[in-house]
Each structure stands twice: as C-alpha cells, then as structure tokens.
C-alpha cells in the first residue's frame, strides 16, 4: 500500500464512521430537537391591516400597550429609545395644498425579509406562519439587520431597561437588535396582539390582525376588496402590513 492509498482508506473510514454514528443517533432520537416538518405553524400566514381613517391622531394606546406587554426599553430619550411600533407624521404636498397624516409604523413582517437574509447567525428568521422573529438567544448584535431593513423598523438595545413592566414576558439585555414580533406568544395561544387589543378597547379598532390564507378572515376580505397599500412595494420585500387610506 502506498501513501496515497493509505490516506484514501483512512479518510474514507473516518468519514463513514462519524457520519454513520451521527445518523444512528439522529434516527434513534438520542439527539433531541424539532424540525420544521412537525411545527404547528404551517399553513398560516399572519397579516395586518391598518385603517388610517379610523386612527385617532393623538391616541397612543397601541404604543403604550406594546411597551407594557413586551417590556420595550423606552427611556424617554431618543438616543436609546426602542420602538416596536411608532407613530410619525407624513406631509404630502400637491401644488399649494398640503395634507398631514399620522401613520403607525412597525415591522412589516415581509414575505422576503431582507433582515433575515443578512443575519449571519440566523437569529432573525421567518417563522412558518410568516412572522419575522428575532431569536435573541442567538443574536450577536452585529446590526446588519438594521442596515438591511428598508422600513427602519429595527432598533438596537444600547441600554438595559431597569424596571420590569410585564414579568410574564422577557425583556432584552443590551447588545441585541429587536423589532416587533407581532406578539407571537399571544398569537400562538389564539389571542390577538397587544396593540390590536388596545386599539379595539380604547380606540376605534383601526388595527386588525388575521390569517391571510383563511379567506373568511376579516383581514383577507379587506385585502381582497378594498384599495390597500403597502410600504415600498417596489423593493419586492412583499410586506404583510397593509394600509387603508394611506
């Protein structure tokens, strides 16, 4: 046997042995872990409709509810503030007349999320039901997603939040990027997101969330029937937050 043959046989044996052991352990179930195939989320596609004609200008019910529910780090200081959902004023000028509008902005939960594409550790990813989530356990704080997001929906935790408004939910320690997760914990239990609940309780019910694959849902009906707009549709990110009266 020459040197070349020896390396061929030795390498082949080691490769076959290790992969064989891994395959056996995987098949017999001694390596625990789930796969996408047995996820209960398949077949759904959560979308949101925001009716701006119902949205009251000075109302901050959804913002407050979100900050309380998700322990969002809000320090009243624009350098460190994190916004999962925020309100801005848009001014459109046609000729001499100008109209102002207050618009709610949040993560658009794109069908092709640029933030998930650039994430080097797959911390940001799209769940089977279309919600774009950040796995803060994996996030290394590189902030690529903040650069990639065309909607500026992502914020970085520069500073820890000290108080703990909702002890049932985790907060984020400093050094991770975060964005709206459409209250995935509530949706999994069959409830509505905090902002939707607050809007229907306090305001006019301007925000709606529903399954877009289910043609009977309110959201799917509005998207089919009315003139809805999405933000920056030309980028091809296919956002799932639809605006009425934008």
């Amino acid at each position: 046997m020459d040197r070349r043959d020896f390396f061929k046989i030795a390498g082949g044996t080691i490769l076959a042995g290790t992969s064989g052991v891994y395959a056996i352990r995987r098949l017999t179930g001694s390596i625990p872990g789930s796969t996408v195939a047995d996820s209960p989320l398949t077949g759904k596609k959560w979308g949101m409709v925001i009716d701006l004609s119902k949205c009251v200008e000075d109302c901050t019910a959804c913002l407050d509810a979100c900050r309380y529910e998700n322990n969002v780090a809000f320090h009243q200081d624009e350098r460190w503030d994190v916004h999962w959902i925020r309100k801005i004023r848009l001014e459109s000028k046609i000729g001499t007349t100008s109209t102002e509008k207050s618009v709610i902005l949040l993560c658009n939960h794109c069908e092709k999320p640029p933030c998930a594409q650039v994430c080097p550790v797959q911390a940001t990813y799209k769940r089977e039901d279309g919600i774009v989530v950040v796995d803060h356990h994996r996030c290394i704080g590189c902030r690529y997603c903040m650069i990639a997001c065309p909607y500026n929906a992502r914020y970085f935790n520069f500073k820890d939040k000290e108080d703990w408004s909702n002890t049932d939910r985790p907060k984020r320690s400093h050094g991770v990027a975060e964005a709206c997760n459409l209250c995935a914990h509530r949706i999994d239990l069959g409830e509505l997101p905090a902002c939707v609940e607050a809007c229907s309780n306090v305001g006019e019910g301007a925000i709606m969330v529903g399954d877009m694959n289910d043609s009977g849902s309110e959201v799917a009906k509005i998207i089919m029937a009315e003139a809805v707009k999405r933000l920056k549709e030309d980028l091809g990110t296919e956002p799932k937050v639809y605006y009425l009266g934008l």
Partner: peptide, 13 residues
C-alpha cells in the same frame, strides 16, 4: 435548550 428552540423557532408552546 430544546424547549427554547421549540418555542422560539417552531411555536410549540
């Protein structure tokens, strides 16, 4: 760790 993965990534609460 397994439960964390199940909940965060696959929605199995």
């Amino acid at each position: 760790r397994v439960v964390r993965e199940d909940v965060v990534r696959y929605g199995k609460r």
